[in-house]
Amino acid sequence: MKELTYHRAEDAASAVALVTGDPDARFLGGGTNLVDHLKLGVTSPTTLVDVSRLPMDEVAELPDGGLRVGANVRNSDLAAHPAVRRGWPVVARALLAGASGQIRNQATTGGNLLQRTRCVYFQDVTTPCNKREPGTGCSAIGGYGRYNAVLGASEACVTTHPSDLAVGLAAVDATVVVLGAGGERRVPMGDFHRLPSDRPEQDTTLAHGELVTAVELPASAVARRSTYRKARDRASYAFALVSVAAGVDLDDDGRVRDVRIAWGGVAHKPWRAAVAEEALRGKFLSEESVREAAEAELAAAVTDEQTAYKVPMVRNLTALTLTSLAEGATR
């Protein structure tokens, strides 16, 4: 870790100005990922601008029934919030499936979205990694690949995004509110994270110095009837092998009026399974119909010996998640 200059931000605008003006400056939130990376040498800023005490820690109900979540709301507080539990169970479930109780007390909403891949090579500065050091190569290709992507990977990077919350937010069409030097902009979750292409160093569409200030959750019937399921090695405190965030809205006959499916552990970003969603609209939800829809989405999957399991795993888990939601399960 290089020597560091530390600034405690007075307000969001000045924090943005400080970081925008210094390519070696970073925002510090809960610190659960950044402090880890400082110690590993994965990132070497010379200046930290601490935004963790800025008053972005409110969960406010919006006039249209939606929710505005301040970027500094801690993961545990968001999961415990009555409105989230009631109106966006997939968000609460995704949060509770991630990390540990201690880390959830510490990690922020904004920081969770910005956490970086857990690829073993990304985290080890003695190995080549295009995401950490552009142009050095991808060690995960031909290396350890159990957690690698099966959708949307590139020759430059095959890793996956580690967040559970982000998958939940992708399923409910959340909007990320961002403050930059030029003012505020609103980014739909689907456009927030990106696929690696030939620029894997860029996890998101944020510019340097842009600060996540809030996340907005629109109210919807699919969000109210939603859940999150995660397959992993350990029963707790483990990153996803694959995960499924899903919500459904059925008509009186039990046909799908609307459905949302997002997958974790399969791509460089939360993977919104739009093809599968489209295939299910107007249909009855059965294991067969969901499997078929998931397979259509997975037609584009590229696997190897180490990742082949992810295709049947995410297909099966999607079938289970949606059919149990249709049956009225609460988890």
Partner: peptide, 25 residues
């Protein structure tokens, strides 16, 4: 690195890892 929990304390009353927190913050 936040992977074991041995450094847990109560920070302002809540359980918290101390290895992933900068003291100055």
């Amino acid at each position: 690195h936040g992977q074991c929990g041995s450094c847990t304390v109560l920070l302002d009353g809540r359980r918290h890892l101390t290895c992933l927190a900068l003291a100055v913050a």
